[in-house]
Simulated assay, not measured.
Amino acid sequence: MFLVVPTPQAVADLVSTLVYQHIKAKPAAVLGLATGGTMEPIYAALVAKLQQQPLPLEKLTTFNLDEYVGLSAAHPQSYHYFMQQHLFAPLGLAPSQVHLPDGNCRNSAEECQAYSEQIAAAGGLDLQLLGIGSNGHIGFNEPGTPFDCNTHEIELTAQTRQDNLRFFADAAEVPTHAITMGICEIMAAREVILVATGQRKADIIAQLYASGVDEQLPASVLKQHRNLKVIIDEDAAALLPTHLQQAG
């Protein structure tokens, strides 16, 4: 389940290759996408591959994991903005091909229900990319989130807000809530790739390796997934058992 490669760039090269191969095998694939610093080099590598060896992308559909409540799509720290900058615009994807929750919606319950219905109408996710939060969250499914949930609004923990403070000018600007794809929808994906890089992810990766399946560590539910890859660099693997720490 755990695949260790030497560096963050090696992670990006491997994961982008896996995504490229998935699109090549199924041009009408439905991709579940994540945001954050870990994903930036992955998307850069994927864009480079698709520019060097183009594939037809007209039938591709994407669904993002989450979006902050209260940020417009044009806000520089919104996930709409991130995806447009790092993937959608470089690949020339049409607005009809990409889906993210609306963080500025008037009724979050209706927005969450609609998002779940859109995922279901697309046939579910073929491949889901995931990062992992320092408290084990996937998407913004924080510790204690029921494993049987679909898309929902959630209050972000103090730890998550502190982790995300680096993206904002001050603590008051960090959103307190987000809309996130639910664990049911993540687990229904036909393939899941969880990615982690850097020393700051070593502790949570070690916890994930050692834990049982527990709602207090949301990522642990992935141990029940039928087709999971956990791809990490040597720094993120530093606290794993010795035989797992070196690149394979």
Rank of each mutant, 00 (worst) to 15 (best):
Gly32Gln: 03
Pro175Thr: 08
Gln9His: 12
Pro41Ile: 01
His243Thr: 12
Lys223Trp: 13
Gln224Thr: 15
Val192Trp: 02
Tyr209Ile: 06
Ser134Ile: 11
Val230Tyr: 12
Pro27Ile: 00
Ala178Lys: 04
Met181Ser: 00
Ser96Asp: 14
Asn150Gly: 07
Met1Thr: 13
Ser96Trp: 03
Gln84Phe: 03
Gln21Ala: 11
Lys49Ser: 09
Leu3Trp: 06
Pro146Val: 08
Leu165Phe: 10
Ile119Thr: 04
Gln113His: 12
His137Asp: 12
Thr17His: 11
Asp66Glu: 00
Glu111Gly: 09
Ser116Thr: 15
Pro175Phe: 03
Pro8Gly: 10
Gly248Asp: 15
Ala12Met: 03
Ala25Tyr: 01
Leu222Ser: 12
Gly248Met: 09
Thr61Val: 09
Asp102Asn: 15
Ala121Trp: 04
Phe167Ala: 03
Phe82Leu: 06
Gly103Thr: 08
Leu240Pro: 14
Pro54Phe: 06
Glu40Ser: 05
Gly92Val: 08
Met187Tyr: 03
Val47Ala: 03
Lys229Ser: 14
Val4Gly: 07
Asp102Glu: 13
Gln113Gly: 11
Leu33Arg: 04
Met181Gln: 09
Ile119Trp: 01
Leu55Val: 02
Gln207Val: 02
Gln97Lys: 07
Ala172Asp: 14
Asp13Gly: 08
Asp148Val: 05
Ala121Val: 01
Leu156Thr: 10
Ser220Met: 13
Leu228Asn: 11
Gln9Ala: 12
Ser211Leu: 01
Ser16Pro: 07
Ala74Gly: 02
Glu191Ser: 12
Ala94Glu: 14
Ala74Thr: 10
Gln77Ile: 02
Lys26Ala: 04
Glu117His: 13
Phe168Gly: 00
Leu100Cys: 13
Gly70Trp: 04
Asp13Phe: 06
Glu111Cys: 05
Ala189Trp: 04
Glu117Tyr: 05
Met83Arg: 11
Leu239Val: 07
Met1Tyr: 10
Lys229His: 14
Leu156Arg: 05
Ser96Thr: 15
Cys105Leu: 06
Ala178Ser: 13
Leu91Gly: 09
Leu244Ile: 06
Ala219Asp: 08
Ile154Phe: 05
